[in-house]
Design a protein around this nucleic acid. Sequence first.
DNA 1: ACCTGAACACCGTTCAAGT
DNA 2: ACCTGAACACCGTTCAAGT
Lengths: 248, 248
Amino acid sequence: MCPKIVDDAVIEAREEEIMQTALQIMSEQGVAGLTIDKVVANLPYSKGTVYNHFTCKEDLLTGLCNRSVKALTELFKRAVTFEGNSRERMFAVGFAYMLHSQLNPTEFMLVISAKTPSVREKSTEKRQEEHTALESELLGSILQIISSGLSSGDLNLQPHLSPAQVAFSLWAMSFGTIALLHETLDRCSVRTEMMLERELTNHSNLVLDGLDWKPYTKDYDWAETVERLKAGIFKTEFEQLQEQLSLT
Amino acid sequence: MCPKIVDDAVIEAREEEIMQTALQIMSEQGVAGLTIDKVVANLPYSKGTVYNHFTCKEDLLTGLCNRSVKALTELFKRAVTFEGNSRERMFAVGFAYMLHSQLNPTEFMLVISAKTPSVREKSTEKRQEEHTALESELLGSILQIISSGLSSGDLNLQPHLSPAQVAFSLWAMSFGTIALLHETLDRCSVRTEMMLERELTNHSNLVLDGLDWKPYTKDYDWAETVERLKAGIFKTEFEQLQEQLSLT
DNA sequence: ACCTGAACACCGTTCAAGT
DNA sequence: ACCTGAACACCGTTCAAGT
């Protein structure tokens, strides 16, 4: 009836197949081990077809990056629905970020390298725009929680700080913690189950206390909140993470 | 008299020459634009000689990364000598980090990519060890200020936080802010002179307030501290930055 | 002992030929 | 209209020959 729609679906399915294959190779051989030849060898298509979907290797990397951010967006949206006070919801966002980075270490590193000028310059305009759109969705979730904190009175913004600046602070803090800790965990090869969780909780508490966002760390049972997240909205993800860690 | 020493000096000078050439190429053509052929073309030596100094391209990248961290170490040591209270000295470290990342954007990005597994795996053992040694020197400066804050009573550690964790928090915060802001500034192509300075001050204040490190943001004239840094220990660097920004 | 650069292998990208 | 894979260009790395 409408062949165009069917075609689009086929194209999208193939794009997904290409990206999954690329991801598989990268998780085994590292980002530097990714080769279009290797991707094609694991696929029933030819090189030319892959280049019909992605204009160059960098475009493929940005595509993978977007795929990962898309999944993160979903987790953030779920965090916004967490039942609790506004600071708990903000904490849930950080928790979601941590879970995502742990469950998809390869993709997380990709987000960093996709921001690199050398990758961005070569990617398609289209995929770059998709990327910025996804990032403002992420930011949107954070801003939503900030404004709910403001209206509930949990958060009192200092005059020199705008909501956008607060959102940026929180993001930078989480990003920095995860990026540096990933690297440290890699090097020590001591992937203790809860190291990242503990550090991220510490940093999150520092920044949220610094922002004067109530209830303060000392006035609340945050361990209980963590338990509620693990058993509630992020149950599936947490179980996946435990399984993954027990395998290593 | 002692030819070995002369030889070492010659070798070191050449290594520096190679790294400077590589840096020059990277600042013009990006990290992806760096090619051993291009490096050799700008040098009076042959490919083989370059490969006598660096075992592979990644080893050269790690060498450049270390060169940059070495310079940062010097700035941090200077920050420790800043005359003021302990929180001011801690702030000076963040300020040094910001100055360094602004003055050497290419090198700063390199530090990120050098931490990437694909680069680290290929680098020489020797250069990797040098890198960890440099990083503990950086951390050492931070720990020094933390312990002076503890003994002066400016900083009261919460029971669940160790000095090392605090140092890590501060580092992660600065790193995250700078990395994300670099990217944002790149994209907007609005390199307003003081954007990074303002954001880093905000974040630093948030974290230090959160840590309960006195004097609090609201109780002190931090703008005056910034002025003192700009006119004092970081005068040269600040002037370089202004010059650089006025040229663009 | 160190330097040289031709030679090799590998990989991203293209495009003429095929369906 | 889309797919194919041989062919090309480029780049990291090596090593026999030279000094």
